[in-house]
Simulated assay, not measured.
Amino acid sequence: MPMFYRLLQSALMAVFLAMFLVAASPAAYAQLDQAPSPASPSAKEEVELYQQLQGKVQGYVSIPDGKLATLVQPEGREWREFRNYWARIISGVMMVGMLAGLAAFYLFRGKIRIQAGRVGRTVTRFMPVERFAHWLSASSFVVLALTGLMLAFGRPVLIPLIGHEAFTALAHYGKISHNYLSFPFVLGILMMFVVWLRDNIPEKADITWIKQGGGFLNNGFHPEAGRFNAGQKMIFWTVVLGGMAMALSGYMLMFPFYLTGVGGMQIAHIIHSLGTAVMVTVIFGHIYIGTIGMEGAFDAMGNGEVDLNWAREHHAGWLKSEGISTDTRDGPSKVPTGAGRIAGQEAD
């Protein structure tokens, strides 16, 4: 089993690197600065027509769908400019900026170690149903993020590398997987909301944790936190609220015109694209802490057990609520079975 968890951790780092290569590729922005094709001879007449019609060309139709009467929508040109330029710029800056910040932090701080060392005894951090909910949403999100980035940056990045035909097939199957994997993603978020809501309510101790920077900048100092610290709570609410926003806007795009018209679809697309960038940026930090950023953190979701000294240093308030001593010189105390119980197994 330890080998499996190491392979899983390596796979997460590979995904982390793949997202970085897509987001940071200079080719993603190479086509954004290309000049438009020369104007046609009738461009002047078209501009005059748009000015006379205040930019909107709309007629009449006898069929029930009145939306088809609109031939030209000025907001559509603004949306297209945002989609083809600003959405890529904003998303790229956010994601690459986060990756650069994490790299700089790692060079400055290094891996956060267990100061007292591993004690060789573990405490149950997450039950199987909690880990299932996490990995269900996490694995779905990885595919959703990669396919979404492919659809957003694929034309300027992938077509020059693999050609139009290969990209067409990749985009086709990517869109299918993107649509269908949205359902397990939403299910995982709903499960996490149910099982972790009680532990993610903001409290006064979170303010202290934030003021002290979570102890990340001070080697050997860790502010007391409950089962989830303020940073984890922020990730929780970002995933829950952001995930629901992604689901709602995504389903509006997947099933067009059931709830709104063309203008509403354009707004849904903007929310979906910017919300995705925010979530990917936040998850970058989450993956960093859970893999190379902190010793012992991956064990919590890997096998559900964390070293007792790790829990004492990072979640002393949680151990107190479970009746476990937070003094690293003490042996483990007996507590009821379930999350928080002491296990006698050796730490990996």
Score class of each variant (00 low, 15 high):
residue 13 M to H: 04
residue 17 L to A: 15
residue 24 A to K: 05
residue 27 A to P: 03
residue 29 Y to I: 05
residue 34 Q to N: 08
residue 37 S to K: 14
residue 38 P to R: 13
residue 39 A to E: 08
residue 47 V to T: 11
residue 58 Q to R: 13
residue 59 G to V: 08
residue 61 V to H: 03
residue 66 G to M: 06
residue 68 L to W: 00
residue 70 T to L: 12
residue 80 R to D: 14
residue 81 E to H: 14
residue 81 E to V: 12
residue 83 R to E: 10
residue 83 R to G: 04
residue 90 I to A: 11
residue 91 S to Y: 04
residue 100 A to M: 12
residue 103 A to N: 06
residue 111 K to N: 10
residue 112 I to N: 12
residue 134 H to W: 06
residue 137 S to P: 08
residue 139 S to V: 15
residue 142 V to C: 12
residue 144 L to R: 03
residue 148 G to R: 00
residue 152 A to S: 12
residue 157 V to C: 02
residue 164 H to A: 14
residue 176 I to K: 10
residue 184 P to F: 02
residue 186 V to I: 07
residue 189 I to F: 10
residue 190 L to Y: 06
residue 190 L to F: 12
residue 193 F to K: 05
residue 193 F to A: 14
residue 194 V to A: 15
residue 207 I to V: 14
residue 207 I to M: 02
residue 209 W to Q: 04
residue 209 W to L: 06
residue 210 I to E: 00
residue 220 G to L: 06
residue 221 F to C: 00
residue 235 I to H: 09
residue 241 L to I: 13
residue 255 F to C: 04
residue 266 Q to Y: 03
residue 269 H to S: 15
residue 273 S to Y: 04
residue 276 T to C: 12
residue 277 A to Q: 05
residue 285 G to L: 04
residue 289 I to A: 14
residue 300 A to E: 03
residue 301 M to I: 15
residue 305 E to T: 07
residue 311 A to H: 00
residue 322 E to A: 15
residue 327 D to C: 05
residue 330 D to C: 04
residue 340 G to H: 10
residue 344 G to K: 13
